[in-house]
Design a protein around this nucleic acid. Sequence first.
DNA 1: CTGAAAGCGCTAACAG
DNA 2: CTGTTAGCGCTTTCAG
Lengths: 342, 342
Amino acid sequence: MAARMKDIAMDLGVSLMTVSKALRNHSDISEETRQRVLRRARELNYEPNWIARSLATRRTFMVGVVIPDLMHSFFAEVAKGIARHLDPLGYQVVISNTDENPAAERRQVDLLVARHIDGLIIATALPSWKQGGHAAFESAMTPYVLIDRLPAGLDANYVGVRDEELGEMATAHLVAQGCRRVAHLRGPATANSAGRLRGYKRALAKAGAEFRPEYVVQAGGGDMSGFTAMRHLLSLPDPPDGAFCYNDPVAAGAIQAVLEHGLRVPGDVAIIGAGNVHYSDQLRVPLSTIDQGSGQLGEAAAELLVRCIESKTPVKPSHVLIPPRLVVRESSRRQPTDALRT
Amino acid sequence: MAARMKDIAMDLGVSLMTVSKALRNHSDISEETRQRVLRRARELNYEPNWIARSLATRRTFMVGVVIPDLMHSFFAEVAKGIARHLDPLGYQVVISNTDENPAAERRQVDLLVARHIDGLIIATALPSWKQGGHAAFESAMTPYVLIDRLPAGLDANYVGVRDEELGEMATAHLVAQGCRRVAHLRGPATANSAGRLRGYKRALAKAGAEFRPEYVVQAGGGDMSGFTAMRHLLSLPDPPDGAFCYNDPVAAGAIQAVLEHGLRVPGDVAIIGAGNVHYSDQLRVPLSTIDQGSGQLGEAAAELLVRCIESKTPVKPSHVLIPPRLVVRESSRRQPTDALRT
DNA sequence: CTGAAAGCGCTAACAG
DNA sequence: CTGTTAGCGCTTTCAG
């Protein structure tokens, strides 16, 4: 069986406490005793029992991460960013998938709280936080940070993307590439999607271009939604010559639709997505996109959470917004000279 | 603060034990008492403290999953498969990334063992298991299952892919499509890669085709390795007209190289990958591939692990191999009629 | 059917 | 510098 402090103590003829302190480099232990303890611990291959330690200290050094979908590379990157920050600090990251299911999210959160994780990072699938929220950790006073999605009217720690800026950046880029009729394949009815739409409108306004409602179509859903949406746009009497897509998968579908329609990308329709998923440069037409700084976002969330965990007094909620970054590839490049190439 | 059993007991004027038993549906509690306890627990929003329970029972209901890279969609899918099986059984899945780094893997495993997880699923980054292995859980008797990679000469629970069958299936498909000079962009020096290579050779032999050493080139490395490898093949005096690539990213690079060379896929060079990563159908040329059944693999591994955990007596190591599945898309389709379309 | 006693392995607080 | 006394919240005997 695994060695316990007790074993070391008995072997050395000292008290359990001496061992406990020596192992944790407590100051009030003589150097000699410490060495003896350390040596014996090594010999016995001693590893502290985290369960017991947690019970006594009320700290688990575990952080829960609740996300809608690990397969979505955005969340996978965020998760990696979180781990990158937390690992060196000695925290274990426990990831839970919810598959965008509010009930599953509730269950996962309850479980994590029952396990007494020190903090929680959540990309929530709950449309609204008000009716219910997560009673579990509200009452357990578990610190938490929301990421990516901020339910309306909730005052909480939040780390996200500057969606409006993102939308404006993407749209402005298309305009700068010479597009005169820029469409928008918008996402689902979320704050993020709304922000991007606002950015789109603002860019049009700034460019003195007309906003046409028929150029904004829904595409947030399944894998084919980008394809379908773009096909619809192409059937308009006056089809667009550029499209800002809610995310990269939608953009990929849109490209497919354009090509199948017998048109060229970017020649006839320039396209830009968002997310910079890692395969974007291997698509039929390498995809221009807006990088959301996912890894950075994860790190920022982790940092904020640790601040909350380690501060004795409750920290007042703060928002961190990661700036988007334009990544120009072939799908939008009409002008020979252009910005960053990646 | 969170409610404890003690609180419920005092409120109801019964003993702590009565509460404990009632909550766990122990048989020897009167129905009436049970109901009273259950009701009070609900009122107080009681959640059992898993830390305390674990300390007492020596069971954590946590399972560690150690993988080289969450961003690799293969492992993300495997992880989801694992969670899908374990979740309903009440186990928490704790995922750790190692970034293919043996030292990191050792650290993560030690940490997980110190947390007394009930079992471990590992896709190891250790080239050989013999010199060191993972002392931590060997001595802690923690049951474990290896996935995807089986270090040579190790007798352990293992769930993986039938690599040789995979290689043969891919190669045979290309031959069936009329390719006469099939190359192989092989992976790194691992057992998986070797198995696929063997399958490749076997398929050639069965087809009565000549094996040409110059047609096998290394490509397991970075993102560009498929591209580079294929460019090299195209520069041969007698370039191939088909290529079985170690995995989908390599295949994507290979396609790019062929196209940039001014040739067509599959017209001049037919290409097939392996892994069926979820964006394979959105590449420049939709990619034929061999599906490795990643989700299924994860579930199988979880199932096997649970068997080990829950059996009192040590289970003797067993191997489970998931059968590969051909997925034909455009990159290899030369014959009008063909097998499965996905 | 109910409960008292003992302990899981560790740590905080205080005495010596 | 070292050790003692009390738990952390729950479960496992074993008596009533």
